[in-house]
Design a binder for these strands. Structure first.
Lengths: 230, 230
DNA sequence: ACCTGAACACCGTTCAAGT
DNA sequence: ACCTGAACACCGTTCAAGT
């Protein structure tokens, strides 16, 4: 709506005006095609045909940019929970599964999420939905409020961990190093590890995710918060 | 006139031979004095009076180096749990609190831990101890094994998140952005957020950590794993 | 107000060559 | 076997200067 000066058309085909939205959209595109590692100020500036310093008018720093990219991706989360039944618990499970899936597709973002929490509209919509479903459990208000945090944190941390693991299994990555270390342990000095050994390493990712969800929901709904006498 | 080359002792005293141990110890020292951000291959090489490429004989990459630093720090965790009573639960709480405290003192390491899981002796000792205490709950072997993972993940993720929050509160950091966004939410479109609003943001860090521990322990001990018919 | 070039102060990793 | 110099291909952020 602003009366801008008439843009004189040059050879270069309409370089769009810089804006936060345009920067974030470009960042999402670069992320999808080349990964979050390429979403750098310099690379984006190049993509937007300007210098890196120009971006700082719209974006505080790289972490904030990554948080904005994450929020944008959060638009893909299915909030309906229609894969679940009518049960609030199964609906909540479906929403959390969808959230987890989005992060698993872009695992580097999960790491970013733990560092710079998003605060955009899609994040708020997600929190709203989880709160709504979890409060149907009948648990106290404080438990529900704190519980949402735990559910999101657990899913995010799991995706962040998996992000390393999914690298090619050929490379001596750190997860395999941990598995090897647990196997190589001495039964005399580490009897508990030895006793729990297959289980410590076993279990499919979906099984573990499903169990984690149940652990948290069971724990959240049965554990009153410190202050409130609910 | 052949100049006899004799190692005249100059100011520089006895450059010690490179070794993995020496590299990691130096990394820990740099981390303590200047933060993990300065623990880079180049900086370490400088500190060790060599070129960065030399380090690659002993360390695969930067992530592995950071994992080694973390394992070294894990030596500070109090495994006795003597702050707790005779109860396995209070002892376990004390161990987890000690672990959390160590990570809170070096929060950047918590982020590293989520990415590159450690596998050194101190990590194994910690896992052994938590397994031992948690199995005293009488829960099934699978629950205990998977539960240890959850307890460590929760504490680590919490420390990692806090690491951002603890930066100077003056700066418009992302946590404050989230708080602001939650406050600014419209009651019509986000009724659940509005209804849960003070609790969503409230609560001291120790209270939340204490509650998280109880949620997990309660959930772990009461939720059987998918396959096993315990 | 918005945008920029140029600079400052760094990075990880590889590789051919030396000892 | 171990170690290195040099190079390749990048980074984030600031700031004085321009429009």
């Amino acid at each position: 709506m602003t009366a801008r000066r008439e843009p004189i058309s040059r050879e270069r085909p309409a370089k769009p005006a810089l804006s936060r939205r345009w920067i974030v959209d470009t960042a999402v595109r670069v992320m999808r095609s080349e990964g979050l590692g390429k979403v750098t100020m310099r690379r984006l500036a190049q993509e937007l045909d300007t210098g890196p310093s120009s971006l700082y008018v719209y974006v505080a720093n790289t972490a904030e940019l990554h948080a904005a990219v994450l929020d944008s991706l959060l638009g893909e989360v299915d909030l309906t929970g229609r894969d679940g039944g009518g049960d609030w618990r199964e609906q909540l499970r479906a929403v959390m599964t969808s959230y987890t899936q989005v992060l698993f597709e872009h695992p580097q973002l999960a790491r970013a999420a733990l560092v710079a929490r998003p605060s955009g509209e899609n994040y708020l919509r997600l929190v709203e939905r989880i709160l709504d479903l979890l409060s149907q459990s009948g648990a106290g208000r404080e438990q529900v409020a704190w519980g949402v945090d735990k559910l999101l944190q657990d899913a995010t941390a799991t995706a962040a961990e998996q992000s390393t693991r999914e690298h090619d299994p050929a490379s001596g990555d750190d997860w395999n190093a941990t598995v090897r270390a647990l196997h190589a342990v001495d039964a005399g000095t580490h009897p508990a590890i030895t006793a729990h050994m297959p289980a410590l390493i076993d279990g499919s990712v979906p099984d573990r995710i499903r169990w984690s969800f149940d652990v948290l929901v069971n724990g959240i709904t049965h554990t009153p918060v410190p202050g409130a006498g609910d």
